[in-house]
């Protein structure tokens, strides 16, 4: 019970201090709108919002969560306020779960923004919500843990941003959102399958347009596996690097 008081208050503090700040809310709204406009401007044919939706949702979550968690944790470590959390009688697992929960919620909100905006222009009848919601949440979870992995590896806020991009851009091009995996050069294809976004994006495609390539159960299982592995790896790194 005592541990959960700490969990809830860390989450509440992070939401209030970081995620619910006006710049971050506006980021959550502007980012998907900007991406949609970009596709609209370069498209020679009428824009199919529904076809774009899985990609926009994936990118919004990926960019939102990886940045936010890596930056906020690095920021707290620089200001040494993170030490206060490490000094508390709260298990590292629960502490990191509290820190990442805020980013997962923020990421899921980011996924919701393009979805709500698309309702203004298109009909979303037939969307498989039972696939779409877990996909959005699990993309947020894996991206958040990727952000945590980045946060452990850097000591400066600007490094967190640079290092995030090192992962994010290759992931975008390898996950099958822009170029189908089958059209990638043969030597790059195996890489696509070690990226969690591949499975998340495929689930979203299946949920919105019914054109996913992989079985939903496989994608779901792989995302859970990636989330668990990234969390365990990050906790191990936290213990080794921050309590060394």
């Amino acid at each position: 019970m005592n541990q959960w008081i700490a969990f809830w208050n860390i989450l509440k503090k992070d939401m209030r201090n970081y995620y619910l700040k006006p710049p971050n809310i506006s980021w959550g709204i502007i980012f998907p709108v900007a991406w949609t406009l970009m596709f609209f401007l370069r498209s020679r044919e009428p824009l199919d919002i529904r076809a774009l939706l899985p990609g926009i949702m994936s990118m919004s979550v990926l960019f939102g969560t990886t940045s936010m968690l890596a930056v906020t944790i690095t920021f707290e470590r620089r200001g040494r306020s993170f030490e206060r959390l490490l000094l508390a009688p709260v298990s590292i697992n629960l502490l990191m779960a509290a820190k990442t929960s805020g980013a997962v919620i923020f990421g899921t909100f980011n996924a919701g923004v393009p979805l709500i905006l698309s309702l203004l222009w298109t009909d979303l009848t037939g969307v498989q919500w039972t696939v779409l919601i877990p996909a959005a949440v699990l993309i947020a979870v894996t991206s958040t843990f990727l952000g945590l992995f980045i946060a452990v590896s850097v000591s400066e806020v600007f490094e967190a941003q640079t290092f995030s991009n090192f992962f994010r851009f290759p992931m975008l091009f390898l996950c099958g959102l822009f170029i189908p995996i089958a059209d990638l050069p043969w030597f790059l294809r195996p890489l696509s399958y070690v990226i969690p976004l591949t499975y998340g994006a495929d689930m979203l495609k299946e949920a919105v347009n019914g054109n996913g390539v992989l079985p939903v159960q496989l994608s779901l299982g792989m995302l859970v596996l990636f989330a668990s592995a990234l969390f365990i790896l990050s906790i191990r790194n936290v213990k080794r690097s921050w309590i060394g």
Binding site: I5, A6, K13, N17, A88, V90
Partner: peptide, 19 residues
């Protein structure tokens, strides 16, 4: 402590870490 939080909120938050 946390720059953005007030003195009171900082104390309340720190105490919450101890359940």
């Amino acid at each position: 402590l946390y720059d953005e939080l007030s003195g009171f909120d900082n104390l309340v938050f720190c105490a919450s870490l101890y359940g």
